[in-house]
Amino acid sequence: MTVTPTLQAPPFPGIIKKPQQGEAVKKWQQRMQDRGWHIKVDGIYGAESERLCKNFQAEKHLQVTGIVDETTWDKTWTAPSAVAPPFPGRVLKHPPIMNGEDVRQWQEEISMRGWPITVDGSYGPRSEEICRQFQKEHALVVDGMVGRNTWTNTWVETI
């Protein structure tokens, strides 16, 4: 996957927080989706948008408020991509159900980016299903297995 250079942020439209809706919300959601975050682009800043905003702020070492302020807005366009931790050396797949800290680490990241998954360190049918959805959305080979490419793309934003 090719990561493009950072862009200049469009003019700040003013604070975005819940409950709010409109074109500014939609523009921010689209940018987050373009970066690889699993977010619905509907122009409605509700609980899901707020949660992903908090996750993004934490990842970028910003004040975690869940409010898209001027700094968060700017970083949505300009912050560098996340860096994937080293590949754990084994392909996560099901069956059989696989357990381990590497599974938990992948589940935590995929959950943080908006995918509805339980973080339990167990790679079973639900993890495989989410993996397939992630792979499809990110134009990867859809096999339901977290190999080196899927692992890396879980952390790398597609800015």
Rank of each mutant, 00 (worst) to 15 (best):
G43E: 07
G43N: 09
G43A: 07
G43Q: 06
I44G: 00
I44F: 05
I44Q: 10
I44Y: 07
Y45G: 10
Y45P: 05
Y45C: 02
G46C: 09
A47F: 14
A47W: 14
E48I: 14
E48R: 11
E48H: 14
E48Y: 14
E48G: 10
S49I: 02
S49D: 03
S49K: 01
S49M: 05
S49N: 08
S49P: 06
E50Q: 15
R51W: 08
R51D: 08
R51V: 01
R51H: 12
R51K: 14
L52T: 02
C53P: 01
C53R: 01
K54H: 09
N55Y: 12
N55F: 10
F56I: 03
F56M: 08
F56H: 03
Q57N: 10
E59Q: 15
K60C: 04
K60M: 06
K60L: 05
H61S: 12
H61R: 15
H61P: 08
H61V: 11
L62F: 06
L62G: 03
L62T: 02
Q63W: 11
V64D: 00
T65K: 00
T65R: 00
G66W: 01
G66L: 00
I67D: 05
I67A: 04
I67R: 05
I67V: 11
I67H: 07
V68W: 05
V68T: 01
V68H: 03
V68P: 00
D69R: 04
D69A: 04
E70K: 15
T71R: 13
T71V: 14
T71S: 13
T71E: 11
T72R: 01
T72W: 06
T72D: 06
T72H: 06
W73N: 00
W73F: 01
W73K: 01
W73A: 00
W73M: 00
D74L: 12
D74P: 02
D74F: 11
D74N: 11
D74H: 13
D74C: 09
K75Q: 12
K75M: 14
K75C: 08
K75E: 09
T76G: 12
T76H: 01
W77S: 09
W77G: 04
T78G: 08
T78Y: 13
T78Q: 12
A79Q: 03
A79Y: 05
P80H: 09
S81I: 09
S81M: 11
A82V: 11
A82Q: 09
A82K: 07
A82N: 14
A82E: 13
V83M: 09
V83N: 14
A84T: 11
P85W: 02
P85M: 13
P85E: 10
P86H: 08
P86R: 14
P86E: 15
F87V: 07
F87W: 10
F87Q: 05
F87M: 08
P88R: 11
P88H: 09
P88E: 08
P88Q: 12
G89M: 07
G89L: 04
G89K: 07
G89H: 06
G89S: 10
R90N: 15
R90Y: 09
R90L: 15
R90P: 10
V91N: 01
V91S: 02
V91P: 01
V91I: 15
V91A: 03
L92C: 08
L92Y: 04
L92V: 08
K93E: 04
K93V: 09
H94V: 10
H94K: 12
H94E: 13
H94F: 15
H94D: 14
H94N: 15
H94S: 13
P95L: 03
